[in-house]
C-alpha cells in the first residue's frame, strides 16, 4: 500500500485531481471532467484491492488462534470474494455505466447499496459462528483455568 501511495506521488496530477473551486458558489467544490481519473483508475482499483486484502488478513488474524490460519481463511473467504467483487463492480460501473440506478449514478448506487453493506457478510459470520470461530465453551473453560491459576499465584499481580 505504501508502494501504491509512492506511485501516486510520482504521477503528474491533473489540475482538477482534487476538484476545483465552484465558479458560482464559494462554499462548494466541483470535480470537473471525469477524465481526471483516466491515469489513476487502475491504481485506485489496486489500492482498493490491497485495502480489502489487508482487512481480510486482519479478520483472519483475529480468528486464527481458534481455527488456525487455513481454517480462518476458509471461513472468511466467501465474504472476501463478495467484498472484492462489489468493489470491482463499482470501479467498472464508474468507468463504463451511465444512466441512473435507484436514482443515483450506477457506481454511486453500488457504493451505497453494495460496498457499504458488503462487509455485513463478516458481521453475520461473527454472529452466527461466534462459538466455533471466536469464543466457544472450550475457550471459556480454558480461560477459567487461566484465571484460577492466576488467583493461586501469589502475590496477586497488579495491572
Amino acid at each position: 500500500m505504501c508502494l501504491v501511495v509512492a506511485l501516486c506521488a510520482s504521477l503528474p496530477e491533473p489540475p482538477n485531481a482534487m476538484g476545483v473551486a465552484h465558479p458560482v458558489h464559494a462554499t462548494l467544490r466541483k470535480g470537473g471532467p471525469e477524465g481526471r481519473h483516466a491515469g489513476v483508475l487502475a491504481l485506485g482499483w489496486a489500492f482498493g484491492v490491497l485495502q480489502i486484502a489487508f482487512f481480510v488478513g486482519l479478520l483472519v488474524l483475529g480468528t486464527r488462534s481458534k481455527l488456525g490460519n487455513r481454517g480462518a481463511m476458509v471461513r472468511v473467504l466467501p465474504g472476501a470474494l463478495v467484498y472484492l467483487a462489489t468493489w470491482t463492480a463499482l470501479v467498472l460501473a464508474y468507468a463504463h455505466a451511465r444512466g441512473r440506478w435507484l436514482g443515483f449514478p450506477p457506481a454511486t448506487a453500488i457504493m451505497l447499496v453494495g460496498l457499504w453493506p458488503a462487509p455485513l457478510v463478516f458481521v453475520a459470520l461473527y454472529m452466527r459462528g461466534f462459538r466455533s470461530l471466536v469464543y466457544g465453551p472450550d475457550e471459556a473453560r480454558a480461560f477459567k483455568a487461566i484465571m484460577a491459576r492466576q488467583r493461586e499465584a501469589a502475590p496477586a499481580r497488579k495491572p
Binding site: M18, G19, H22, K30, G31, G32, P105, A107, T108
Partner: peptide
C-alpha cells in the same frame, strides 16, 4: 457537476 454525484465526489478517487 457529474463528478459530485459520482462515488468519489469532487475530492477524487485516491
Amino acid at each position: 457537476d457529474r463528478e459530485a454525484a459520482n462515488p468519489w465526489g469532487t475530492l477524487g478517487m485516491l
